[in-house]
Amino acid sequence: MATDLHRQVNPLTKETTDDAAVRVDSLTRSFDGRAVIDNLELTIPQGEFVALLGRSGCGKSTLLRVLAGLDREINGEVLVPRRKAVAFQAPRLMPWKKVWRNVLLGLPGSPGREVAEKALEEVGLGHRSDAWPKTLSGGEAQRASLARALVREPDLLLLDEPFGALDALTRITAQRLVSDLWQSRGCAVLLVTHDVEEALLLADRVLVMDGGVIAHEVRVDRDRPRDIADPYIADLRTQLLDRLGVEAPEAAEVEKVA
């Protein structure tokens, strides 16, 4: 696999080769003395699709930012591939650049427009390559952002609630797109989300973050495409919701009666 070089996110600049895409060892990140990430361990093998769940403010987005190299005020050891890409919740396209220029932004050398068009074609946005970002719909902008991430041919793709702002129908299409792209690319994916069903439909492994560490882990052994009505998935869903502190409907009913 292509993950040959690792770059540490901490001040030491030791590079090693590894068969994992992410290795995190005793990572701590504090805000004003409060540890949001507290001695966290995490390994993501190459090519694995991992979903990270957690309540609001549990530090899951902070972890993603650390892995992206955007947050470096950390203690501990973090190894990530040199080639990694992020898609944020907001598409964060530069409004002053046409879509195809946004896709190429920051790429080394000066790749031609056809490189961008190919990536846009892959997310079904080839026809909007010459558009201004302001003319894109929410779903289109998010796909452009995804094309911008994929054109970097990442070994690790970090997705920070990328479907959060999309309407229900667009979200389903976008989820399928991510699933297909992951299967054709074979890169490791870390998807931060608060949607349990989304995590179960897409991921090989679902992690729950709580108290600054990975508190719970579920492996999803089902072929894709998955069905949310599948009893196996429904069972995992109840289990995860329970972990997240949301009581299952029956339990809530009982409580109301009592």
């Binding site: 190299g69 955007l70 890409a85 964060r92 530069m94 002053w96 932004l105 920051g106």
Partner: peptide, 27 residues
């Protein structure tokens, strides 16, 4: 600041950020 961060995550250096993000944004 979100666009600056996006530029960072795309691998733009200091000069690249100024040229592609800061100056067009200040226009």
């Amino acid at each position: 600041a979100q666009l600056i961060e996006a530029g960072n995550s795309l691998g733009l250096g200091r000069w690249g950020l100024i040229r592609h993000v800061v100056l067009p944004g200040a226009l």
